[in-house]
Design a protein around this nucleic acid. Structure first.
Length: 598
DNA sequence: GTAGGGTTAG
């Protein structure tokens, strides 16, 4: 009698044990008999017994049976036993070497994959076209650019450099190692016969995933001009690029084309579209699509919840989360981050604590999110104690969240402490240096501000240049801080608008700009911040008041630009939707959706 | 008997 709840594997094992020990027929003695047995085996003990049996029958010299056993072990996967078996085999052929290298590369043991490749070479086994895709994947996972280049030279040496799959894998490796130019060069060197859809997709997605969304979209366009029809994977990359750039118009056009031209679509494409709408500040369109979707995954739910959170609609975020649970969908760690983010952006401390306490296995990023939530609410002492009581090791993100809170609440002492920890763990992140500098500046400690700057110079940490962008008629316009002689029209508009706003009570913030983590503390710089230029530009070009002005900013919006935008929305009756590094600001009738809490 | 491309956060 088999107990209720026994898994199929156990049933299998029990059946085998019964056949081995309690009842005839006897164990197989032929190759065919073992093959049958192997096909039904699916657990380590089971396979181990078969191995032992094989050794007693004298059939173990049959490499084909051992190969099948090895393949079964890899599929479990039980790499250490597989390796043990492999080491006992007599002169394994290249197929088996490849299979084992692949298994290591796939089970997140890239170092072992490379080591095995070297073993194979030492024994004089010649690699074939199947070997290198696995080895190259391992190089990419090791993030070892020198090793990658060395393997590339071997690809050339073994005359496999014209193999389309090897070339594709080389592109992916170089892109992952941060050498998108090399990836592009490989693509350009491929023969037109080799440039199939997968090769195009590999380069497009490499650009997308490595922050070159504009190049990805250009390549996508080139691909279509070359007569290739995009499939769902191409579309995911193209839509994600629109999301990254905040190109709502282009994203919408792709969505329309998918419907009208019946392009290949699936839940991945829909999720990418949801994300695109969320990242372009249009939760109305995201919500419409979400309602129409035939199939939803946890990514769909997480994207929507996170989208509402960053767009400042915490109520919808949390009610969607509760609906998700009602439908029996289990949250993952990204969903949980989205939920905490919703609480954080709305200052819902009690709710955040409640959700956090119910999370299974919170990770360091969930702790960082809690630090952000507690810290923003001003309970700095409690926040510090929370960090100290963490059962897992803190990372720079955790201390960085505390540093951010100290900047808001002018806590110099705790801020310095947090900064020390941040710089110990991650010395090279510019925004944290700027935060510390801002704390000092707020206290008038200009000597310390100077020291932070020197420290940055000494460590070759450079501030990220601020910019804003606007999409108009499918074109993206970039604006950088400061003076641009060629933008006369924009400056004229800016002066005109500022005069109107001043008449309504707007006063530029000329002192220390507390939330401004990236700009110089100078009035002139504040006056020509990139977001103001982008707004002025939009006002000159977009005459219809019915369409909101959409601005994307790579860093956080400063206090003065935030106030400025609120005034514009009221004085000129223009809605402004601004995405900054952390969240969205929807300005309407003189108010912001973030309720000045960001 | 083995091979290449995709979504949420960070």
């Amino acid at each position: 009698m088999i107990a209720r709840g026994t898994s199929p594997i156990n049933i299998c094992t029990l059946a085998l044990l019964r056949s081995l020990h309690t009842s005839p027929p006897p164990p197989p003695t032929t190759k065919a008999g073992f093959a049958v047995l192997l096909r039904s085996a699916s657990s380590r003990p089971h396979l181990k017994q078969i191995h032992a049996l094989l050794l007693t029958t004298g059939l173990s010299h049959k490499n084909s049976l051992l190969t099948q056993l090895l393949l079964s072990l890899i599929s479990i996967p039980d790499m250490s036993y597989a390796r043990h078996l492999f080491d006992d085999m007599h002169k394994p052929r290249v197929f088996l070497w490849n299979t084992l290298i692949r298994a290591y590369a796939r089970t997140n043991l890239p170092g072992d994959a490379i080591a095995l490749y070297h073993d194979m070479r030492r024994l004089g086994v010649r690699p074939d076209s199947f070997t290198f895709p696995f080895v190259l994947k391992a190089c990419a996972d090791l993030l070892d650019v020198w090793l990658g280049m060395a393997i590339h030279s071997l690809v050339i040496k073994f005359r496999l450099v014209n193999d389309a799959i090897v070339q594709t894998e080389l592109m992916i490796m170089y892109a992952k190692l941060g050498a998108c130019d090399s990836a592009e060069n490989i693509f350009e060197s491929m023969s037109s016969g080799s440039k199939d859809l997968v090769a195009w997709n590999a380069l497009i997605s490499s650009f997308t995933q490595n922050g070159h969304a504009d190049k990805a979209l250009r390549l996508f366009h080139r691909m279509e001009s070359a007569g290739m029809k995009p499939d769902s994977i191409t579309l995911v990359s193209a839509i994600s690029s629109c999301a990254y750039l905040g190109c709502l118009e282009r994203g919408r056009r792709l969505h329309r084309r998918i419907k009208e031209e019946m392009l290949e679509s699936n839940v991945f494409v829909d999720n990418a579209l949801l994300d695109m709408y969320a990242k372009c500040g249009s939760m109305e369109e995201a919500s419409k699509l979400f309602g129409e979707m035939q199939q939803r995954s946890i990514v769909s739910w997480s994207t929507m919840i996170g989208g509402y959170a960053v767009n400042g609609d915490s109520q919808r975020a949390l009610s969607l989360f509760s609906r998700m649970q009602d439908e029996g969908v289990q949250p993952n760690h990204v969903t949980n981050l989205a939920v905490l983010s919703a609480c954080s952006h709305a200052g819902l401390v009690g709710e955040g604590k409640e959700y956090f306490s119910r999370m299974l296995d919170p990770k360091v990023e969930h702790y960082a999110s809690m630090v952000d939530l507690l810290g923003r609410s001003g309970h700095l002492e409690e926040t510090y104690n929370f960090i100290k009581s963490m059962p897992i090791e803190q990372d720079a993100g955790v201390w960085g969240a505390l540093l951010g809170a100290c900047t808001i609440y002018h806590d110099l002492e705790l801020g310095q402490l947090a900064a020390d920890e941040v710089f110990r763990l991650a010395p090279g992140i510019p925004s944290y240096h700027v935060l510390l500098s801002n704390i000092y500046a707020a206290s008038g400690r200009w000597d310390d501000v100077q020291k932070v700057r020197e420290n940055m110079r000494g460590n070759h940490v450079r501030k990220v240049a601020a910019y804003s962008s606007v999409e108009l008629d499918g074109e993206v316009y970039l604006f950088h801080e400061g003076s641009h002689g060629q933008w006369k029209e924009i400056y004229k508009k800016l002066d005109e608008v500022t005069t109107v706003l001043r008449g309504m009570g707007y006063e530029p913030v000329t002192g220390v700009v507390l939330h401004d983590v990236e700009s110089e503390e100078k009035e002139a710089a504040v006056r020509t911040h990139s977001e103001k230029l982008a707004i002025a530009f939009s006002l000159t070009r977009m005459k219809s008041a019915g369409t909101p002005i959409r601005i994307m900013k790579n860093l956080r919006v400063c206090n003065d630009c935030h106030t400025f935008s609120k005034y514009v929305s009221r004085a000129l009756g223009r809605d402004i939707i601004m995405r900054d590094k952390n969240r969205f600001h929807h300005f309407k009738d003189g108010e912001c959706s973030c309720r000045d809490f960001w």
